[in-house]
Nucleic acid binder design. Structure first.
Lengths: 352, 352
DNA sequence: CTGTTAGCGCCTTCAA
DNA sequence: TTGAAGGCGCTAACAG
């Protein structure tokens, strides 16, 4: 079965009865500037449509600077949620800017990382998004500095490359506001404080929470330190509750911590959304699976991915820019409601 | 700051004092066949290394058939876990076969889907992996049939394209075995049966579970139908338990169902891994976050992605092939242990 | 064994 | 307004 060859520009030109030059001008929108006859334009466009002509980006790149392709490189690995949503946003944004994305994952392997970057540059990508799953400080590979690049979810103080980041500080304030929207009856604690070198999110979130609370005249009572995992959070909170502490509000630094906190509270006979208000960060699916649903400040992965691509391709302004993407809140029923808001809710807290 | 231009083959040739032809032959491993002097080979290779020469794949594609780039197209969307792990596998496999991957997501939008495929073909990819997040029956776009393509996590009965799928049936048997490895004290039920047109996983899993149980002389007591979500599963199981049913083993068709089941069992005073054995499917992170950890039959996303790429690029055999990837089990502590296995931990075959 | 030459598909200066 | 011609970087007949 012989599949008919892809049509080339010259096929279109011949069919329209013009030279390839003319066809090229018309198809590239230079017809006005070149004062090409309306008739020729129509014939060429029709011929192109009839043949379903599509220019060959590879050949085109031999003459031009662009490939209509961008690279996205990331360390991914564990980042299920992050990686896929970020790519969803990146893919959609690229599409709407008429680009395709080349994706590469090094698992923190510097060698693989630069190898993948080389491969992308070999293919003459129009730019590269350098991403990290955990908001962090990085040292971008030297090559990237000489090329069009945008940092995603990370910063490099030694370079002036633009960066796209979630607005963690404002997210912290949002979390505080969400907590205070209900009426926490008791002191407020943050669960998950951990000095993690290279990771930025935690500290900024805590700053935001503290300031957000203070603005409402509430003092942050304390920090419950623990790694960002379910069992660690369970143990840490279980221990605190075991000492007789009875918090009114808990802010978990991510949803997995929230899961551990739910269990610990349940074990101590405390009802989420009734006795204790809980809010957290991430806005992952997990938050929605819990009962009562966990109110969570969302990491807008998809938007981050999209913004990065837009900045990379559109970035008219140029220059060192840091784009901070707002973190919206996904409301659940984990915050104690005040009397006024309590009656209308069709939702009843679970029997836990 | 003028960045020095990328070296071309002719730069290498000049520096080595040979013609570009000779340099090309040498760099493409044809030196033996062409009987090129060892001396020339050394000079060319050295020059290439010194200049850090890298061939331009776009230019190369103008002459050759290959681009060392493959496309991966999927419907992604909700598939956090699936999408990212699948891409991890695909990216790694592609890398080891000296390829890069072009990624595209349509969100079930047929128009966008074919548009993305066209874009990939425009770039002359060496092949396309057509993926779905949910194992399902599909109708691949017509164009794919004339090209090198592999189906991932889906099948199309009307085509002879090779497909890579998780071995759901054997996975079902594995789940049954995992459940029986402990000693379920009571009847066994499957939670999550749902007639879903187009989706294949559920039915195959249930078949495997049923056969696996029967092989051990155990009859599947019944199916608890419900959508594959936490709250739906909670309600369904809560209702069953409310009628006084006291199952010995529950097989959940995915981990989110497992989460709902845990809650329902707890609400009825039943302890997972003690009073009731629970196993499930997916092997998602969630299973590891639960306590006791949920024993789950793993969907090997990463392996699936890798196999698809390998089949696409290596596929020596050709012809209609269906590769079924085994589903391993991630053991937790959600299965009731027998007295014998309780101390040493060694798995004993069940006595039925 | 090595160099000359032509052409992949497209764009663009230059001339008509 | 349009066409001829050359070149982007690379490969492969076809001479020598």
């Amino acid at each position: 079965m012989k599949v008919s060859r892809k049509p080339r520009l010259s096929d279109v030109a011949r069919r329209a009865g013009v030279s390839t030059t003319t066809a090229s001008y018309i198809l590239n929108g230079r017809s006005v500037q070149m004062r090409i006859s309306q008739d020729a334009q129509d014939r060429v466009r029709r011929a192109a449509a009839e043949l379903n002509y599509r220019p060959n980006p590879n050949a085109r790149n031999l003459r031009n600077a662009t490939t209509r392709t961008v690279g996205v490189i990331s360390d991914l690995v564990a980042g299920g949620q992050f990686a896929s949503e970020m790519l969803t946003g990146a893919s959609a944004a690229a599409r709407s800017l008429d680009h395709l994305i080349l994706v590469g994952e090094h698992q923190g392997d510097r060698h693989l990382e630069s190898l993948l970057i080389e491969e992308m540059l070999d293919r003459r990508v129009d730019g590269i998004v350098y991403a990290r799953v955990a908001t962090s400080e990085v040292a971008v590979p030297e090559v990237l500095r000489q090329h069009n690049a945008v940092l995603l979810n990370c910063v490099d103080r030694t370079t002036s490359l633009p960066a796209v980041l979630p607005d963690e500080y404002e997210g912290g304030r949002t979390a505080a506001a969400a907590l205070l929207a209900g009426a926490p009856d008791g002191e407020v604690y943050v669960v998950g404080e951990m000095p993690t070198p290279g990771s930025l999110a935690g500290g900024l979130r805590i700053d935001g929470i503290r300031d957000g609370l203070r603005a409402a005249g509430v003092r942050l009572a304390g920090l419950v330190p623990c790694p960002w995992s379910t069992p660690d959070a369970y143990e840490a909170v279980d221990a605190v509750l075991g000492q007789g502490t009875r918090p009114g509000g808990l802010v978990c630094l991510n949803d997995r911590i929230g899961l551990g906190v739910y269990k610990a509270l349940a074990d101590h006979g405390l009802r989420v959304g009734e006795d204790v208000s809980v809010v957290s960060f991430d806005g992952s699916d997990l938050a929605g699976w819990l009962r009562p649903r966990l109110t969570s400040v969302v990491l807008p992965h998809e938007t981050l991915g999209a913004r990065a691509i837009e900045l990379l391709l559109d970035g008219a302004g140029r220059g060192p820019a840091v784009v901070r993407v707002p973190m919206p809140v996904a409301a659940g029923e984990s915050v104690r409601r005040t009397a006024e808001t309590r009656d209308d809710g069709a939702r009843r807290p679970s029997l836990g």
